[in-house]
Design a protein around this nucleic acid. Structure first.
Length: 815
RNA sequence: GCGAAGGUGGCGGAACUGGCAGACGCGCUAGAUUUAGGAUCUAGUGGCCUUGCGCCGUGCGGGUUCGAAUCCCGCCCUUCGCACCA
């Protein structure tokens, strides 16, 4: 019989396509199961191992759901806007539209070759005007709801990509995409009010079936922190400096204030005498990259402004400083410095010879060395002396509140989402600026605002769309006068923040999707993708979905019910695959050699799905051998039709049946939790059991019905993981097309126990023997059997004080 | 520094609510078979020795328990995330 190979892949791919096997049937929406892999960027290179690991095994999971009777909805699409196509265009002159659509075509073919169960009728491509029309609609929906606003603010600027970035796209002070150091710039940009949703994004996490670490990452990113806002009146000016602190209990230890260099009050507070020094300092701080400002060997620099504020409780005069260890974007951009009880303030005070008073002692009142940052008992704090830190926080905040100089408040680390990008290959922001009417949204009827083809997309610090006058110049929708379009494009994370809503209704031309339909198709039942999107995409998508929920466009607040992250497949050297290291494993070579199912099944077998790990060539050969072992078995079954004696029920038959039912039960359970490696192990065990049976029982004596059932079961269990192979084997044993229309095998709980079980016999917790007893034997029977064992007898001669019996497991004699 | 996850044979990795550690596979050893094979089959494979009814073994040290990879306490190490967050 012919060996499994890519030729068989092709045969079944064609057959599946010809028969429309994977066409989603909307009539069965009540049985729908929405399985989603994070769609990918259509890069010019071939599908890599990571794609296979994500798409291939998610497809296997989906196939199980299909066989379990669900109407599986598993769409595929492309996150097609973005920088690589644009950078490629700058290098080669090939238009992003051209290269992107060419890449999409290649990727579609490769995804077909993978044997994915995708229904391409539901494809989504984010750079298609039919799609980004609705991305723009989404932006306007947020705008109309007051959730999109334009503001001048210090933003992260990547000098290399020549665009601003969202906070989430800055990693350790560098650009997430190109690793260049990010600098701060003040620019007028569009923001989405994700901070309005901070608390709900936090609370919503509790009910999601997501990896705990991912939820934790989102919680940390949102960074909710309870504290107090405290007002310090500025001496000689009718203004206040508000600070945020979580340690209101240390207020009496605050002996100066620090403003971030970008703080709006700096110039007003700085006295003439100090003006030169302060502005020089601010200039220097502005030029520093984010990386420098936050680098580990940072030194606490800062200058005095000459200004003073009044302590809200003690009335003391306290100096105001400017220092770049305070960041504008957190809290109020100003802090009260408490050098005795904060490490940073302590370091700063030491460096600048400022006094360091103590206002908290440890709980047993000893003079713990400063800075003492733990909670303790208050001293030198007027009426609050003797209070513990926790009560003092409340008492001091209450006191401030009565004086109108403070209140309890909550601060977040999360910032509003900056969505403007000074790049070409993205969805234009549908806004118009009119000299008369100001900012005017593009009317919905005029959408999409199409991206013009002809522009100079080499960035020179301004948006490429500026170079297309026919795009820029337009009429004001309100007054009809001359006006200009916004020349920035939307962050591609906006495109991907709602694509899962578009899939089920991707041909809708009247709306992004119809609510009635979308409410039946969503939420996504199982979402699978890389952990690198834990914040960013997954947070943005939740935010957008929640907004649409509030605006009554969808009926569910959370889009992704369950989430799994696949791990990362490393190179054979155990390091991340990269071209420069020369350790890249190319799926194509292996697939040409062994067929796609061998590749897929090795990915299932060789790794813990969530952890990933290093590639091993030996592993894929082992998998190829396994499939061939199954093939040989099927060949034998198909040829030797001599095992007809159906009625034999002996020990060998019981053993085979046991393994078969175990395999069904455990594969069903393990696959459910993405534990694919043990699923394959169980298939191997069943295969081994089949061979063993044939080895033990002579031809002619074999239980043909059982053999046939076990073989069919094996193929059914393998089918999701080796779809082409299983379909082929299924055909050869006379199964009806398609194996994926067969029900998932079920197990008989009665068959999960053997007639007899081996019991471990321990004496004082040490294994001394094993005895075989009928399964379900009573404690007395088990104990008697154990005592009867001669190896045990020697150890318990001196008497037994206690006996523990775990049914069907073990006996422990305590002497 | 803070937070999370994790340390199990030569390797990838198993082990349900505490109950025979090492499933399954790789590799290795011996044998069989074949003209050949990245083939197949059989047996073995955690370590140690004094080869026994033996001892020791899940990062290290304690503890709880009849019994601990699993639970508790204290360390060490690795990975990931955040990082002057006030």
């Amino acid at each position: 019989m012919e060996q499994y190979s890519v030729a068989i892949d092709r045969k079944w791919q064609r057959r599946w396509e010809d028969t429309g096997l994977y066409t989603f049937n909307p009539d069965r929406v009540d049985e729908k199961y929405y399985v989603l892999s994070m769609f990918s960027y259509p890069s010019g290179s071939r599908l890599h191992v990571g794609h296979w690991y994500n798409f291939g095994l998610t497809d296997s999971w989906a196939r199980i759901k299909r066989m379990q009777g669900y109407e599986v909805f598993q769409p595929m699409g492309f996150d097609a806007f973005g920088l690589p196509a644009e950078n490629y265009a700058i290098q080669t002159g090939i238009h992003p539209k051209e290269s992107t659509w060419a890449n999409i075509e290649t990727m579609r073919e490769q995804l077909r070759a993978m044997g994915g169960m995708f229904d391409w009728e539901y494809e989504v491509v984010t750079c298609d005007p039919d799609y980004y029309c609705w991305t723009q609609w989404l932006f306007l929906a947020l705008y109309n709801a007051g959730l999109a606003y334009r503001a001048k603010a210090p933003v992260n600027w990547c000098p290399d990509c020549q665009t601003v970035l969202a906070n989430e796209q800055v990693v350790e002070g560098t650009c997430e995409r190109c690793d260049s150091p990010v600098i701060h710039r003040s620019m007028t940009q569009w923001f989405l009010r994700i901070t309005d949703y901070a608390d709900r994004l936090l609370e919503g996490l509790d009910d999601l079936d997501w990896p705990e670490r991912t939820k934790e990452m989102q919680r940390n990113w949102i960074g909710r922190s309870e504290g107090a806002e405290i007002r310090f009146p500025v001496e000689g000016e009718a203004v206040f400096i508000d600070v945020f602190t979580t340690r209101a209990d240390t207020l009496f230890g605050a002996n100066y204030l620090v403003l971030a260099p970008e703080h709006p009050l700096v110039s007003r507070i700085t006295t003439a005498e100090y003006h030169a020094r302060v502005s020089a300092y601010i200039d220097r701080a502005a030029r520093k990259s984010e990386l420098e400002r936050t680098s580990l060997e940072r030194e606490k620099t800062g200058v005095f402004t000459g200004g003073y504020a009044e302590h809200p409780l003690s009335g003391e005069r306290i100096p105001i400083w400017v220092a770049d260890y305070v960041i504008l974007s957190y809290g109020t951009g100003a802090v009260m410095a408490v050098p005795g009880h904060d490490e940073r303030d302590h370091e700063f005070s030491t460096k600048h010879d400022l006094p360091i008073p103590r206002v908290v002692t440890s709980v047993n009142r000893d003079e713990a060395p400063l800075p003492f940052v733990d909670d303790g008992v208050l001293v030198n704090s007027g009426d609050f002396d003797g209070m513990d830190s926790a009560s003092a926080r409340e008492a001091i905040t209450a006191e401030l509140e009565t004086r109108g100089l403070g209140k309890a408040t909550v601060s977040y680390r999360l910032r509003d989402w900056l969505v403007s990008r000074q790049r070409y290959w993205g969805a234009p922001i549908p806004m118009i600026f009119c000299p008369e009417c100001g900012e005017v949204p593009v009317p919905e009827a005029d959408l999409p605002v199409e991206l013009p083809d002809v522009v100079d997309y080499a960035p020179e610090g301004r948006a490429p769309l500026e170079s297309a006058p026919e795009f820029v110049h337009t009429r004001c929708p309100e007054c009809g006068g001359d006006a200009e379009r916004d020349v920035d494009t939307l962050d591609t994370f906006v495109d991907s923040s709602w694509y899962f809503l578009r899939y089920p209704d991707n041909h809708n031309t009247d709306a992004p999707f119809s609510r009635a339909w979308i409410d039946r198709m969503l939420p996504v039942d199982q979402y699978v993708g890389g952990v690198e999107h834990a914040v960013m995409h997954l947070l943005y998508a939740r935010f957008i979905n929640m907004v649409l929920y509030d605006l009554d466009f969808v009926g569910f607040p959370e889009p992704f019910r369950a989430l799994t992250h696949q791990g990362i497949i490393l190179g054979p050297d155990g390091r991340r695959m990269s071209k420069s290291r020369g350790n890249v494993v190319s799926p194509d070579d292996y697939i040409a050699d062994h067929g796609s199912d061998v590749f897929r099944m090795y990915l299932a077998f060789g790794f813990n799905y969530v952890e990933g790990g290093a590639w091993e060539d030996e592993g894929i050969r082992a998998t190829a051998r396994f499939l061939d072992r199954v093939r040989r078995w099927v060949a034998t079954m198909a040829e030797e039709n001599t095992t007809t004696d159906a009625g034999i029920e002996g020990e060998a038959e019981a053993a085979l049946e046991y393994v078969m039912h175990q395999a069904i039960a455990r594969i069903t359970a393990d696959a459910e939790v993405f534990q694919f490696n043990t699923c394959v192990a169980r298939m191997m065990e069943l295969t081994n059991a089949l061979y063993r049976y044939a080895g033990v029982v002579d031809d002619g004596q074999r239980n043909g019905a059982l053999l046939s059932e076990a073989t069919r079961t094996l193929l059914l269990l393998m089918a999701p993981f080796a779809p082409h192979f299983a379909e082929e084997m299924w055909e050869r044993i006379g199964g009806t097309y398609s194996i994926f229309d067969q029900p998932w095998p079920t197990w008989d709980p009665d068959k999960l126990t053997l007639d007899t079980v081996e019991i471990a016999v321990q004496v004082n917790g040490k294994l001394r023997a094993t005895v075989t007893v009928p399964s379900g034997a009573t404690e007395e029977e088990v104990e008697a059997a154990a005592r009867a064992n001669e190896r045990v007898a020697g150890h318990i001669e001196d008497g037994v004080r206690r006996v523990i019996v775990v049914p069907d497991k073990l006996v422990n004699f305590v002497t």
